[in-house]
Computed example of a mutant assay.
Amino acid sequence: MDFYSFKEWFTMENVVDLIDKYRSFGPLPGILLPLLEAFLPFLPLFLFVMANANAFGLGWGFFFSWLGSSLGALLVFLLVRRYGDSRFFRFLQRNKKVQSLTTWVERRGFGPLFILLCFPFTPSAIVNIVAGLSKINIYQYMFAVIGGKAVMIFTLSFIGYDIVSLIKQPIRTGIVIIIIFILWYAGKHIESRMKNKAHTRG
Protein backbone atom coordinates (compact mmCIF):
# COMPACT_ATOMS: atom_id res chain seq x y z
CA MET A 1 0.00 0.00 0.00
CA ASP A 2 1.48 3.37 -1.07
CA PHE A 3 1.17 6.59 0.93
CA TYR A 4 -1.73 7.92 -1.15
CA SER A 5 -3.73 4.71 -0.67
CA PHE A 6 -2.90 4.81 3.03
CA LYS A 7 -4.37 8.32 3.36
CA GLU A 8 -7.40 7.36 1.27
CA TRP A 9 -8.18 4.56 3.73
CA PHE A 10 -8.96 7.07 6.48
CA THR A 11 -12.71 7.57 6.32
CA MET A 12 -15.22 7.88 9.17
CA GLU A 13 -16.60 4.42 8.46
CA ASN A 14 -13.18 2.74 8.40
CA VAL A 15 -11.96 4.42 11.59
CA VAL A 16 -15.18 3.59 13.49
CA ASP A 17 -14.89 -0.02 12.27
CA LEU A 18 -11.27 -0.10 13.47
CA ILE A 19 -12.28 1.14 16.94
CA ASP A 20 -15.13 -1.40 17.10
CA LYS A 21 -12.80 -4.19 15.98
CA TYR A 22 -10.53 -3.59 18.97
CA ARG A 23 -13.34 -2.77 21.42
CA SER A 24 -12.08 -5.61 23.65
CA PHE A 25 -9.15 -3.32 24.56
CA GLY A 26 -11.62 -0.81 26.01
CA PRO A 27 -10.82 2.85 25.43
CA LEU A 28 -7.21 2.14 24.35
CA PRO A 29 -7.81 2.49 20.55
CA GLY A 30 -9.72 5.73 21.12
CA ILE A 31 -6.80 7.13 23.14
CA LEU A 32 -3.94 5.81 20.99
CA LEU A 33 -5.19 7.15 17.65
CA PRO A 34 -5.15 10.83 18.74
CA LEU A 35 -1.87 10.23 20.60
CA LEU A 36 -0.21 8.87 17.45
CA GLU A 37 -1.30 11.96 15.50
CA ALA A 38 1.02 14.08 17.66
CA PHE A 39 3.98 12.07 16.31
CA LEU A 40 2.55 11.52 12.79
CA PRO A 41 0.84 14.83 11.94
CA PHE A 42 -0.34 13.63 8.52
CA LEU A 43 -2.92 11.47 10.34
CA PRO A 44 -6.42 13.05 10.42
CA LEU A 45 -7.02 14.07 14.05
CA PHE A 46 -10.44 15.57 13.26
CA LEU A 47 -11.53 12.18 11.90
CA PHE A 48 -10.29 10.31 14.98
CA VAL A 49 -12.13 12.72 17.27
CA MET A 50 -15.42 12.47 15.39
CA ALA A 51 -15.08 8.68 15.13
CA ASN A 52 -14.54 8.46 18.91
CA ALA A 53 -17.69 10.53 19.48
CA ASN A 54 -19.61 8.13 17.26
CA ALA A 55 -18.11 5.00 18.80
CA PHE A 56 -18.11 5.95 22.51
CA GLY A 57 -20.72 8.72 22.71
CA LEU A 58 -20.13 12.44 23.14
CA GLY A 59 -18.85 12.39 26.74
CA TRP A 60 -16.47 9.45 26.68
CA GLY A 61 -15.52 10.05 23.05
CA PHE A 62 -14.45 13.59 23.92
CA PHE A 63 -12.54 12.44 27.01
CA PHE A 64 -10.58 9.69 25.20
CA SER A 65 -9.71 11.99 22.30
CA TRP A 66 -8.68 14.82 24.63
CA LEU A 67 -6.58 12.51 26.82
CA GLY A 68 -4.77 10.93 23.85
CA SER A 69 -4.14 14.20 22.03
CA SER A 70 -2.97 16.03 25.16
CA LEU A 71 -0.63 13.20 26.17
CA GLY A 72 0.79 13.06 22.65
CA ALA A 73 1.42 16.83 22.56
CA LEU A 74 3.10 16.80 25.97
CA LEU A 75 5.26 13.78 25.06
CA VAL A 76 6.49 15.51 21.89
CA PHE A 77 7.19 18.67 23.89
CA LEU A 78 9.15 16.74 26.55
CA LEU A 79 11.15 14.78 23.95
CA VAL A 80 12.12 17.97 22.13
CA ARG A 81 12.94 19.70 25.42
CA ARG A 82 15.10 16.70 26.44
CA TYR A 83 16.90 16.15 23.11
CA GLY A 84 16.83 19.72 21.78
CA ASP A 85 20.63 19.82 21.65
CA SER A 86 20.86 16.90 19.23
CA ARG A 87 22.16 17.47 15.69
CA PHE A 88 18.69 17.43 14.10
CA PHE A 89 17.23 20.00 16.46
CA ARG A 90 20.35 22.19 16.27
CA PHE A 91 19.67 22.39 12.53
CA LEU A 92 16.12 23.55 13.27
CA GLN A 93 17.29 26.06 15.88
CA ARG A 94 19.52 27.76 13.29
CA ASN A 95 16.53 28.31 11.01
CA LYS A 96 15.49 31.99 11.13
CA LYS A 97 11.77 31.23 11.04
CA VAL A 98 12.10 28.75 13.91
CA GLN A 99 14.14 31.28 15.89
CA SER A 100 11.49 33.97 15.42
CA LEU A 101 8.73 31.53 16.40
CA THR A 102 10.53 30.42 19.57
CA THR A 103 11.13 34.04 20.53
CA TRP A 104 7.45 34.80 19.92
CA VAL A 105 6.38 31.86 22.10
CA GLU A 106 8.73 32.90 24.91
CA ARG A 107 7.47 36.48 24.88
CA ARG A 108 3.75 35.79 24.51
CA GLY A 109 3.41 32.74 26.76
CA PHE A 110 0.11 31.05 27.51
CA GLY A 111 -2.50 33.22 25.75
CA PRO A 112 -1.60 32.86 22.05
CA LEU A 113 -0.65 29.20 22.48
CA PHE A 114 -4.03 28.48 24.03
CA ILE A 115 -5.83 30.24 21.16
CA LEU A 116 -3.74 28.44 18.53
CA LEU A 117 -4.48 25.04 20.07
CA CYS A 118 -8.22 25.79 20.11
CA PHE A 119 -8.33 25.59 16.33
CA PRO A 120 -8.58 22.12 14.71
CA PHE A 121 -6.34 22.88 11.75
CA THR A 122 -3.48 24.56 13.59
CA PRO A 123 -0.27 22.57 12.81
CA SER A 124 0.02 21.41 16.42
CA ALA A 125 3.12 19.31 15.63
CA ILE A 126 5.00 22.51 14.75
CA VAL A 127 3.62 24.24 17.87
CA ASN A 128 4.79 21.33 20.06
CA ILE A 129 8.30 21.33 18.57
CA VAL A 130 8.75 25.11 18.68
CA ALA A 131 7.50 25.22 22.28
CA GLY A 132 9.92 22.43 23.19
CA LEU A 133 12.82 24.36 21.67
CA SER A 134 11.80 27.56 23.44
CA LYS A 135 12.36 28.44 27.09
CA ILE A 136 8.66 28.58 27.92
CA ASN A 137 7.78 27.16 31.31
CA ILE A 138 6.59 23.56 31.06
CA TYR A 139 3.56 24.30 33.24
CA GLN A 140 2.50 27.19 31.01
CA TYR A 141 2.61 24.90 28.01
CA MET A 142 0.85 22.10 29.85
CA PHE A 143 -2.06 24.38 30.78
CA ALA A 144 -2.24 25.72 27.21
CA VAL A 145 -2.36 22.18 25.80
CA ILE A 146 -4.93 20.90 28.31
CA GLY A 147 -7.21 23.91 27.86
CA GLY A 148 -6.77 24.48 24.13
CA LYS A 149 -7.14 20.81 23.24
CA ALA A 150 -10.26 20.57 25.42
CA VAL A 151 -11.94 23.35 23.44
CA MET A 152 -10.86 22.06 20.04
CA ILE A 153 -11.71 18.42 20.71
CA PHE A 154 -15.04 19.19 22.37
CA THR A 155 -16.02 21.25 19.32
CA LEU A 156 -15.05 18.46 16.91
CA SER A 157 -16.71 15.81 19.10
CA PHE A 158 -19.90 17.85 19.25
CA ILE A 159 -19.92 18.30 15.47
CA GLY A 160 -19.19 14.62 14.87
CA TYR A 161 -21.78 13.44 17.38
CA ASP A 162 -24.72 15.60 16.29
CA ILE A 163 -24.03 18.05 13.46
CA VAL A 164 -27.78 18.65 12.98
CA SER A 165 -28.18 20.03 16.52
CA LEU A 166 -25.25 22.38 15.95
CA ILE A 167 -27.13 23.99 13.07
CA LYS A 168 -30.65 23.90 14.54
CA GLN A 169 -29.74 24.85 18.12
CA PRO A 170 -27.32 27.83 18.09
CA ILE A 171 -27.51 28.00 21.89
CA ARG A 172 -25.20 25.00 22.01
CA THR A 173 -22.74 26.81 19.76
CA GLY A 174 -22.87 29.73 22.21
CA ILE A 175 -21.95 27.35 25.04
CA VAL A 176 -18.75 26.41 23.19
CA ILE A 177 -17.80 30.09 22.93
CA ILE A 178 -18.44 30.61 26.66
CA ILE A 179 -16.23 27.61 27.49
CA ILE A 180 -13.42 29.09 25.37
CA PHE A 181 -13.63 32.37 27.28
CA ILE A 182 -13.69 30.66 30.71
CA LEU A 183 -10.67 28.49 29.91
CA TRP A 184 -8.77 31.42 28.43
CA TYR A 185 -9.48 33.60 31.48
CA ALA A 186 -8.51 30.81 33.89
CA GLY A 187 -5.29 30.19 31.96
CA LYS A 188 -4.33 33.87 32.00
CA HIS A 189 -5.03 34.01 35.75
CA ILE A 190 -2.80 30.98 36.36
CA GLU A 191 -0.08 32.45 34.13
CA SER A 192 -0.23 35.77 36.03
CA ARG A 193 0.13 34.02 39.38
CA MET A 194 3.09 31.98 38.10
CA LYS A 195 4.83 35.14 36.81
CA ASN A 196 4.27 36.88 40.15
CA LYS A 197 5.77 33.92 42.02
CA ALA A 198 8.75 33.83 39.67
CA HIS A 199 9.27 37.60 40.11
CA THR A 200 9.05 37.27 43.90
CA ARG A 201 11.61 34.46 43.91
CA GLY A 202 13.88 36.47 41.60
Rank of each mutant, 00 (worst) to 15 (best):
S5E: 13
S86W: 08
M1S: 09
R87M: 07
F39T: 07
M12G: 07
E8S: 06
F91S: 13
M12R: 11
L28A: 15
F121W: 14
A125K: 03
F88G: 09
R90S: 10
P112F: 05
Q93A: 13
F114H: 01
Q99M: 12
D17V: 03
R82N: 09
F89I: 10
R108P: 00
F48K: 01
R94M: 10
A125L: 01
F42I: 11
W104P: 02
Y83V: 02
V15I: 10
Y4H: 06
A73G: 10
L40E: 00
P44H: 05
F64T: 10
L75E: 08
R23E: 14
L78P: 00
V76E: 04
G26Q: 15
W66G: 01
L36S: 08
L43T: 02
G109R: 02
P41F: 03
L47E: 07
K97C: 01
W66C: 08
I115L: 15
F88I: 10
L92Q: 15
R87N: 07
L117R: 14
S69Q: 03
V105N: 01
T103R: 15
D2C: 04
F91H: 05
I31G: 00
D20G: 11
P27D: 03
Y4S: 10
L113T: 15
A125Y: 11
F56V: 07
R90I: 06
G26L: 12
R107A: 13
G111R: 06
Q99P: 01
Y22M: 14
R107F: 11
F62D: 00
C118S: 15
R107M: 08
L74A: 13
F91I: 04
V49I: 15
L28Y: 07
F89V: 04
F91A: 14
Q99E: 09
A51S: 15
L43W: 08
T103D: 14
G26S: 12
L45Y: 13
I115P: 00
R82S: 12
L75H: 08
Y4A: 11
L58D: 06
L67A: 09
K7A: 08
S5Y: 11
L43Q: 06
D85W: 08
G30Q: 05
L79Y: 08
L32K: 04
T11N: 13
F46K: 00
E8Q: 10
S100E: 15
V16S: 14
G109P: 12
P112R: 03
D20Q: 08
A38C: 12
L78G: 02
D2R: 10
W60R: 12
F77W: 10
A53V: 03
F48N: 01
P34A: 09
P41W: 05
G111S: 09
L79I: 07
F63W: 11
E106V: 08
E106G: 15
T122G: 06
L117F: 03
L33K: 02
N95M: 05
T102W: 01
I19Q: 02
A53L: 11
D2V: 14
F89S: 05
M50S: 09
F56W: 05
P41A: 10
L33I: 03
W9H: 05
P41K: 05
K96D: 11
P120F: 03
L79H: 01
L18Q: 12
F56D: 01
P27K: 02
D85V: 14
D20K: 04
A38Y: 00
P34D: 07
G109D: 06
R90T: 04
W66P: 00
